[in-house]
Computed example of a mutant assay.
Amino acid sequence: MDAEAELARISANLLNSDYMPTFRRQRIAREVVRAATAHGLVKNGAVQWELALDFFRSAPYIRLLARVNLTTERTAGFREVLVGARVPRHPLQCIALLKSLHGTWNAVEQNFSLPDVGDDLHPAQRHEAESAPHTSPRRRWIEKHRARWFPHYQGMYREFRRANPKLTHSQLLRLMPDNARYFISRESLAAAGEHIASARGPKNVIGETG
């Protein structure tokens, strides 16, 4: 589908309150940061400008980004977008940016279809899972939900790997919702016959200098 035609379709879908109800400004900001970090565009809260500029200048959707008037150059405003301090004003800009960072809109939909980190955990279980990763409550919770969530995250991993062939295994996991790490690993994906992304990442990225 033509990029602009898909943009129009997505915009129309978003008018339906039942479509992607989590598509809200705070969630958009978190997903942009998650994806930018996975690509190495943001590190420790700082934009890696050389890598970021190269990424957006070579992005398949560079014309789409220009079409919605989203500036992807080294500006204070775009820095705030990449680090999650602000969200693009127009929904079309949000759509184009998220699609560029995730590779496909289907990948974006998958991320937004899931609850935010820990939303499907009881508060006590979430605390135990995060503070004591080897305790039995966490293991019990994972085993209880494995049949439901492993196939989902496996499919998401496959989608993201195809859409982002240059990303390493670790970068793909960072692109996915945080709960994914409870259910998929290099070993479990390999056991399920999944093709695993390379473990070798980019050598270095240039830090933000002002």
Rank of each mutant, 00 (worst) to 15 (best):
E4D: 11
P137C: 06
Y61C: 15
I196H: 02
L97W: 04
H127Q: 12
N69L: 13
H152Y: 10
P123M: 11
R162P: 03
A197Q: 06
Y19C: 00
Q93K: 08
R181V: 10
F55E: 02
T104K: 00
V108D: 01
L114D: 08
T71I: 14
R186K: 14
T75F: 01
P21G: 06
S136F: 15
T135G: 07
N106I: 13
S170I: 15
L51A: 12
L173H: 01
A5G: 04
S188Q: 03
P151Q: 04
E4K: 14
G84Q: 02
G118V: 11
V33F: 11
A76V: 13
P177Y: 02
W49E: 01
D120T: 13
Q125L: 15
P165T: 00
H127V: 09
G40Q: 04
S113C: 05
R200S: 11
N106C: 11
P91Q: 01
R126G: 03
L92P: 02
H122G: 09
P60V: 08
A129L: 09
K144G: 07
H134T: 14
N16R: 12
R63D: 13
Q110A: 09
L70D: 00
P123A: 09
R139K: 11
E80R: 12
L92G: 04
G155A: 04
F56S: 01
E208D: 08
G201T: 10
Q154F: 01
E194Q: 11
N111M: 08
A107R: 04
Q171V: 02
R74W: 10
T72V: 07
F183D: 07
G45Q: 03
I142G: 06
P60Q: 09
P115R: 13
A5L: 14
R140L: 12
N204Y: 15
Y182R: 03
H195P: 00
Q125D: 14
I10D: 00
G77H: 08
K203W: 13
S58T: 13
Y153Q: 03
E143R: 10
E159P: 01
E80T: 09
I62M: 11
V87H: 01
S100C: 05
L167M: 09
A36C: 00
Q110H: 13
Y153D: 00
A124Y: 15
F150N: 05
L101A: 05
P91L: 05
N106E: 14
A38P: 04
L51N: 06
R139G: 07
T71V: 10
R30A: 13
E109P: 06
P177M: 06
D2H: 11
E143S: 10
A129R: 04
S136H: 11
V108E: 11
A12N: 12
